[in-house]
Every structure is written in C-alpha cells, then in structure tokens.
Design a binder for these strands. Structure first.
Lengths: 296, 296
DNA sequence: GCTTATCTCTGACTAAAGTCAGATGAAACT
DNA sequence: AGTTTCATCTGACTTTAGTCAGAGATAAGC
C-alpha cells in the first residue's frame, strides 16, 4: 500500500514535470530568459516592492538589481524610490510593460485552455486538479474576514445553496429559509470568514448576531476539493474565536441530519444538542455551545 | 465556465510548480548539477542508447558528450560502442553508478512519501493525482499484449473483480464464474491486452478462444482514473483487430445490465443483443458481433 | 549624534547550460 | 568506389544564473 502510493505519486510528478515543459514555454515563449520573465510575472501579480519580489523569487540582491536594470532598459518598467523609506524601491509597469505582461498571461491562458480542451470530460480533470492544488498548498491556506457580499463569499454561498438543494430531500430554496441580512454577519454584530487557497475560495462560515442573547453559526461550507483535511474544524475555531471579542458568549446553530459529517463534527467539537429554536423549514437538528472567555 | 476552468488550471500549475521546487531537491540533493543528474536518471530509467538519451532530454550533442565524459570520470558509467553500428554508443552503470542512481531514487521516494504523509486522507489525493497523470499523459498511453498471468494483468483483473463485487447485487465470486483458462486468452487461441499510462496499468481486455465457432470478449476493465476518455472503446477496437488474424469472425460477450455504461458502449459499437448463451450466474445481457475481414 | 541595521547597487567573479563549426569514423546509398 | 548521411566528439565560444565583497544612502535604536 505504501509502496504503491509512492509509485503513484512519482508517476504524478513525472506527468506534471513533463507537462511543465509546456509551462516553461509560457515563461520562455517571448524570447526572454527565465530571470527577467519571472520578475515581470511577479510585478504583474501585484508585487511591486523590490525586496518583496526578491524574497518571493529567492533572488540575490545583485542579480535582482541587474534584472531590474535590464527590464528598465527594455522600457517595460520604471523603478522609483519609496517616499516613506528612501532605501526601498518600487517597480511599476510602463504601458509597454503592461502589454508584455498581458502577452505572457495570454500564453499561460492558452496553455491552460489547451490542457482542458484535450480532455473529453473536463469537469473530472478540473475537480482532480482542484483536489491536488488544495492538498499541495494546504499549509498556505489563508483565512480572510470579508463581507458576505464579497464576490468570493457569494461564490461560496452559491455552491453551498446548490449543494443543499441536492442533498436535502425537499430541495432547498434560500428565499424560504431565514437568509441572514448581510449586516448581521459583519462587524460589529457578527462576522464572516472565507478560506482561500492560492486565491481560490474553498470554504466559508458566518457568525450571525441576533438580539436574543446568542449568536448563530451559519453557512458553514467547505469545497468538495478540500474535504477530509479538517478545514471545517479550523473554520469553526476561527469563528468561535472571533465571537469572544464581540461580547458573544452563547452560540447556536441549526443543521439537517442528512449532513452526517457536519453533525458528527459539531458533537466532537463540544456542541450540545438542544430543542428547536426557530421555525426554519430545513433544519431538524439544533446545537448550542457556551463560550469561555479563555478560548483556545 | 471556460474562464473559470482556465483559472483553475493555472492555479493547479502554480501549485505543482511550487511543489516542483521540492522535486528539484531530489535532482540536486546529491551535490551534482542538474545536467549530469538528468543523464544519470535517464540511464537509470533504462535508456542506454546515447542518441535516445539525447532525444529524451533534448540535449545538444556536444553537451551530451561532455556530460557523459564527466560521469565516466566520476566512475559512474561506462560508455561503449555498439557492435552492430559503430557510430552509436551505449551508456551503462558501473557498480558505483547503480548505487548513485539508487540514492537518487531513495530521495525521490522520500519526497513522494512526504507528500502523501502530509495528507490526512491520502486515498483522495492519490485518486486525484491518478486522474491528472492519466489525463496529461493520455496520448502516451501504450497498449501491450501480455499473458493474463502477467503481474500487471493480474492487478487489473483484481481491480475488476473487486469492482464487480461492489456493483453486482449479489456480489461476485470469481470461482463461481467461468474463469477463463489463461491459455484461452493467449495466442494462438486468444489474446489479452493491457493499457499502460507511464507504466501504470489502467485497463485490460481479454479475447477468449473457444471451440464453439466464436470467441468471447472477457474482462474489459478501465481504471476509475481513466474513465470518460474513451479508453474502453479503443481497447474494444484493439481486441477486435487482434481477432481477425486469429481466424475469428464471430465474437460474443456477456455483461450485467447494472453496468449501464458498458451496455451503452457495446450497442454504440455495433454489438447486437442475443439470447443467453451460457449458464454463468452473473451476466444477464448477451451480445454478438460479426467481424468483417475489412475491419477499420 | 553616534552606531547599527537595512536596502540597493556595482564590480569582479564562477559555474552551468547551451551553441556552433568542424573533425572523425562508420554506415548507407548509388 | 565514391558520395552522402549519421552519431559522436572536440574546441572555442556565448548566455544565463548565481555568488560575494564592499560602497553608498537611508532608517532605526540608544
């Protein structure tokens, strides 16, 4: 079993590094050496602080300096000294720089599109790639507190709704459920978190403030590609921690018994089953948890 | 949708190329530059013809020559001229070379094991990596005619049996079914094919000769990670083509209606439903196909 | 105000990778 | 036999990547 998993992983590595030849093509496809192409890419990704670029690309300061000079001479970037700190410098695209970066982006996009186009059933492949990306970058998962109206939050919520619609016996229609007002899930009344893996939203959870002496956990969702990695647990901890400074010391949530994994997790995390506390048609399982000031 | 699939694919690329830094570590982990390490690896993978190595690694002849000299001086390889063609040369490991290659292998294995170990549910990740590897290397899928007793054939057959056991209502027990004798699926009576993707068996199919005026297609199986790519169809064509030179012009097969995809495919490929022609307890659906000498 | 730390830049390197034009010897073709 | 083609090898390059020491300017700490 272990032997087999090593062979499979190494086969995967061979597959993606063979394919990485194609990836290199997108970096080298414009007749520029790898070094300057990488710097251009870093700037295009929004990193303009030279020290940051250097750290991101792990480049020596001397090499970095020369690469910047080269790009400047090509007329692709301008480098200027920071106002607040005369030692630091910032790189920005010129018009030509933007165009050049866009050309690299187009190459990368084309290459990605080609891979997808070759596959007779792209959805299978995309799902698998998501699982791999999320797994490989899992320690780099970032949590961000955002408004529930943030487009990335909305993407999560839509996935959540459509999944509920599939799993609940009677389907799911948001308008019939008590859709929390956005402002109930924003400071100071509540809070809303998304989990991002390399920029892609892979999970969300909301803390909905009420005037009834408790707050509710709502909209806990983890992308299928990220399941089984304990993300839901982390998000629950995150949101419980966020509740304390808001002066909340009692949490409630409702769920449906169809969602076994969720029910099992709540119990494991110290939630206590209680009586129905709302008239929402979808949930049939209700939980409560008292928060100590000293949360871990 | 298309837009999204590009973003997801590019995220995947970033994830694996970040991870490829780790991969490089296995190539560079023994204090040898990338060039010679790659050559050593190519030889270890069984490529000894110098021209082949050169093609595989896309190296200039001059550079190649120097890399070989370097490895020779290190005492890791010997290079000798071919007996049959005095221009060609072949590289082989010395004792020390084998040991050095094994050390690289150990590094790669360790790295693969680390990736798996980090994941809380490796089977999910492995399955996803298989799908990606198979998809990326699909045009390099190789078909090989082997004995059904070949270990790779047996691996396929075992997967096939365990899947039948899961999908058939009454389970599946090979001993109750008419398990074809190996020699019925070997030349000259029949034939057996496996599909290999980068060395990993991802599908099989058998042609079982009988003395009843027809041959049977048996054991058609495609790995879950390779489904949806039309591999079953290719394998059917393969085995039908193989039947003609064996003097077979009538093919039969049995299957179970639970396996909808298979049934649909047989119909699409011109198979005609017929009456039950055996007493096997598992199948409930029977097909026949007449072969023309002029198969496409 | 002095010292120390930080950031960038320059010059002088080295190592590695890759290119190119023959030279050499062997096979294949006519 | 003579010509062409082929695979490898050698020498003489260039380009790219990376390293290191120190200079110059600025910021932060005491």
């Amino acid at each position: 079993m272990l032997k087999d998993s090593i062979a499979r992983t190494r086969r995967f590595h061979r597959a993606v590094t063979t394919e990485a030849g194609v990836l290199d093509a997108s970096f080298l496809g414009r007749g520029r050496p790898l070094g300057p192409a990488r710097v251009l890419n870093a700037i295009g990704r929004g990193i303009s602080d030279v020290a940051e670029i250097r750290k991101y690309l792990r480049l020596d300061s001397g090499l970095m300096s020369r690469l910047l000079r080269g790009l400047e001479e090509e007329g692709l970037i301008t480098v200027e000294t920071s106002d607040s700190d005369g030692r630091r410098r910032y790189a920005h695209f010129t018009e030509a720089g933007y165009a050049e970066f866009a050309a690299y982006e187009a190459l990368s996009d084309k290459q990605a599109a080609d891979i997808i186009a070759r596959h007779p059933r792209p959805e299978i492949l995309l799902e698998a790639m998501d699982i791999v990306s999320t797994a490989l970058g899992f320690d780099r998962t970032v949590f961000e507190e955002v408004s529930p109206l943030d487009p990335r939050a909305i993407a999560c919520l839509e996935a959540y709704y459509s999944e509920l619609a599939q799993r609940l016996e009677n389907g799911f229609d948001v308008s019939l459920s008590a859709d929390p007002e956005a402002r109930d899930m924003e400071r100071p009344r509540g809070s809303f978190f998304i989990a991002l893996s390399d920029g892609m939203p892979i999970g969300c959870v909301g803390l909905k403030g009420t005037d009834k002496g408790y707050a509710e956990i709502k909209r806990l969702w983890v992308s299928p590609s990220a399941r089984g990695m304990g993300l839901a647990r982390t998000m629950m901890e995150k949101v419980e921690q966020a509740a304390v400074p808001l002066g909340i010391n009692l949490l409630r949530l409702d769920t449906n018994s169809v969602l076994h994994e969720a029910v099992a997790m709540y119990q494991k995390l110290g939630w206590r089953e209680i009586e129905r506390f709302n008239e929402d048609p979808y949930p049939d399982f209700f939980f409560e948890k008292r928060l100590q000031a000293e949360q871990k």
